[in-house]
């Protein structure tokens, strides 16, 4: 088991390195750098001005050396001008003595995530603040999604082919067919607009960042939860129907155990193994949902940062965003694999 986790962690590290390099490569292509220079400088810069701006701000040089600097395995760039020394590890312009004291390496290995050109702030501060907002959103999404999906799945799979089963199964197909930007728009239209007149909830979740309550937070949570709910419910149903036809259930029935007890004591535990993996593997999808819902409801979290960073080619912020999301995806995959082994004693990892 220890070896398995170690090997998986190695693969994870390799994946994260490859992914960040791809992001790095795409964001450092010349047209993207040109756009960055023009948004940071001014829009009417000549080609020479763009080139000199890029050179002065450390965007020149080869792709590999820049990537090494970002990682912290190559020394950060420094540049001497008449006003003093500027460099990757130096904030603003410093004198030669100050520059000599500054650390040579400053990449993510040293814990320096860089500086966001869009927000004019440290990347680590932005990420931790926004991730907190999204964490809250995700927490409530899981609190709503997982129990209701399991309940729907178990109820539908308990007695296969009944009217309850048909209704619940169709409802789950319906929710999987409704992407967040469709259900969100429908919810906003029905529950918040003055045309329909229900006005039960608020159409934006901006106020939920300081003061989350049912009125401003329920709709975004519901919108994300619905899309994943149907899928988990269908998996639970499939696994439940399979368990309900097993021999030991029939034995329990013949012994005269009540239906209630069969479901709760005999079937449920075995039926919940498969959905557990599915729930864990839903995280990458939830991440997408977060981006859409945060844009739709104007909730400034991690997804909103992703959109802002990508729209403005904010290289270091975008890299941090991809590191975080890749780690989330891979860690949940690992948990799903390990959890599967613990829940299902029949399977051993060779």
């Amino acid at each position: 088991m220890g070896l398995f986790i170690l090997r998986r962690s190695g693969v994870m590290l390799l994946t994260a390195l490859c992914l960040t390099f791809i992001v790095f490569f795409l964001t450092n292509l010349y047209p993207n750098l040109e756009k960055l220079a023009k948004t940071q400088g001014n829009f009417r810069m000549s080609d020479e001005a763009v080139a000199s701006w890029l050179d002065a701000n450390g965007y020149g040089g080869s792709m590999v050396s820049k990537y090494g600097q970002w990682l912290g395995v190559l020394p950060g760039w420094t540049r001497e001008t008449e006003k003093g020394v500027t460099g990757r590890c130096i904030t603003g312009t410093a004198s030669a003595e100050q520059a000599a004291e500054a650390p040579t390496f400053c990449g993510i290995l040293q814990g320096d995530w860089g500086y966001s050109t869009r927000f004019k702030d440290e990347v680590s501060d932005i990420i931790s603040e926004r991730l907190g907002n999204t964490g809250l959103l995700m927490f409530w999404v899981l609190m709503l999604m997982v129990p209701s999906a399991l309940l729907i799945g178990v109820l539908a799979g308990m007695r296969e082919g009944t009217a309850t089963d048909r209704t619940l199964s169709t409802a789950s197909i319906l929710t999987t067919a409704t992407p967040e930007y469709v259900s969100g728009v429908i919810f906003i239209a029905v529950f918040t607009s003055s045309t329909v007149g229900l006005k039960w909830f608020k159409g934006t979740a901006t106020s939920a960042m300081d003061n989350p309550n049912f009125e401003n937070f329920f709709l975004p949570v519901l919108t994300i939860a619905l899309y994943g709910m149907g899928y988990i419910a269908r998996m639970t149903r499939a696994s439940m129907t399979e368990v309900m036809t097993a021999q030991y259930i029939r034995t329990a029935r013949l012994k005269g155990v009540s239906f209630h007890n069969i479901v709760l004591k005999h079937a449920l535990r075995n039926a919940l193994i498969a959905p557990f993996t599915v729930i864990m593997l839903q995280f990458p999808w939830l991440l997408n949902g977060v981006v859409i819902v945060e844009t739709l409801f104007n909730y400034k979290g991690f997804g909103w940062v992703l959109v802002e960073a990508a729209g403005n080619n904010d290289i270091e912020l975008l890299l941090a965003v991809s590191v975080v999301s890749v780690v989330v995806v891979l860690v949940t995959q690992l948990i799903s694999d390990i959890g599967y082994v613990y829940l299902n004693p029949r399977i051993r990892i060779s």
Partner: peptide, 23 residues
């Protein structure tokens, strides 16, 4: 798995821009 670990929207934002089309 590398491609699947990418959040789809990030990938779209990186690939589907006029700047990337120009390269």
């Amino acid at each position: 798995n590398l491609i699947l670990a990418f959040p789809v929207i990030l990938l779209f934002y990186l690939l589907v821009t006029p700047e990337i089309v120009a390269t």
